[in-house]
Design a protein around this nucleic acid. Sequence first.
DNA 1: CGTGCCATTGATCGGGATCAAATGGGGTGG
DNA 2: CCACCCCATTTGATCCCGATCAATGGCACG
Lengths: 240, 240
Amino acid sequence: MSNVHSTPFALPGAGGAVAGVWPPSQPKAAGASLPRRTGLVVRLPVRSRLYVEGEVLTSTFEVIEGAIMLSRRLSEDRRQIVDIVAAGHLCGHALSEQAICTAETLTESLISVSLGRVDHSDARINQELRAALDRSLDHAVLLGRKTALERVATGIVELADVLFPNRGDDGPVDFHLPLTRSDLADRLGLVLETVSRNLGHLRRLGLIAFQRQDHIVVPSLARLRQVAEDATMARLPADA
Amino acid sequence: MSNVHSTPFALPGAGGAVAGVWPPSQPKAAGASLPRRTGLVVRLPVRSRLYVEGEVLTSTFEVIEGAIMLSRRLSEDRRQIVDIVAAGHLCGHALSEQAICTAETLTESLISVSLGRVDHSDARINQELRAALDRSLDHAVLLGRKTALERVATGIVELADVLFPNRGDDGPVDFHLPLTRSDLADRLGLVLETVSRNLGHLRRLGLIAFQRQDHIVVPSLARLRQVAEDATMARLPADA
DNA sequence: CGTGCCATTGATCGGGATCAAATGGGGTGG
DNA sequence: CCACCCCATTTGATCCCGATCAATGGCACG
């Protein structure tokens, strides 16, 4: 049902400890420099774990560049990715003093770290909470009422929106897919094979294409958005 | 997939209009008086619609007694009940100036109505938003990763918790089920038949009993909670 | 005493899960 | 530069849980 990741590395408290723990001898991240500190801004490689569900949080994180995914576990093999935090948004202490989920960078990211909730007004926090709630409700509709094809289409659209925050909606995009099929499955309430098959469907429908397994091309976000809302129109002549 | 309710009645703006629109000649509510105004507190019958998804909100509602359900529609026949607001909690303008969902009383309720966000501090509103977000994430795990039996068990536990806010957890409870099977289905991401069958399973397991179709008895909330988290232990010898 | 809605129950269907290979791309070491 | 290996992904075959279709039963209300 779910996949168990080998943890790249973890932050213990996520508080003042931030700087010290980071460079875990992991030469994996693409052309990225090791995490370096700029005031309270850190650059983190892919899949850096900021905090774990249940932990007491002392820091608030603001995404400057990149994205963070938030997940919850029901048990070792049942995970749900509950949100993806885009650039400009917050997570951590300001939103919940106890971590209500686990947070990991989805891509190499530039993150601003601040203690407690300094740096962020009540109004700002309020706005962030509202946005997070709104996203969560949308996602509840997806998980409760959408078909697999609609879920996968929605997942791609969401990633496009998250990774390219301010672009005139719709029109063509292409980007690196930061999630494996298994991650996508854990986001969409499916299993990885179903994700793979439905990506195939979308591809055969001409709604997406792949340059590589992890590089997707979307000719028209508008058309994909349509399928994401209602896939009844989008069935292949020959279907599995 | 979902049911389309005949709307009992609707509030247009939910602002100062509150008092005028309410008594819609509907002698259905149990022994309830017609909505009467006490300062800014109103008593509403079952299934009163406070506002509809998309509307501009001017009022904040605080549940004094009873409960409110919040729902979103994907289309006419795909509804998801995204939250149930218990006594002591807020919904409406303070949480979102545009209604992000439709709100209806689940039971006859005592609701305090206030314009805008007066009466509620930023801290209070933040606290409410956090609580709502936390509930929503829990629910995402349910919708994404729980089996039908676990969902139904969770649904009952949730109702017990919502309708009896401050009781020593666990131990026996019995109460009127304010949701139809179809409503429960729309809460749990199932269809009504599946809800009915799994209520049957729980009944045969001795985890719940029915005095009437809409009056449930839970001998041990603790045991039901266990099944709500993991139903692998709770399978009947002979099963459908 | 019907009439209509809600719930239960049964029969069958089908979408997505599970189990099982095959494929392929990228990184490593020779 | 190439061979190999590892692992993510694709694809295929089959299963099964929950959806759908279809009666039937029960209770409230006119």
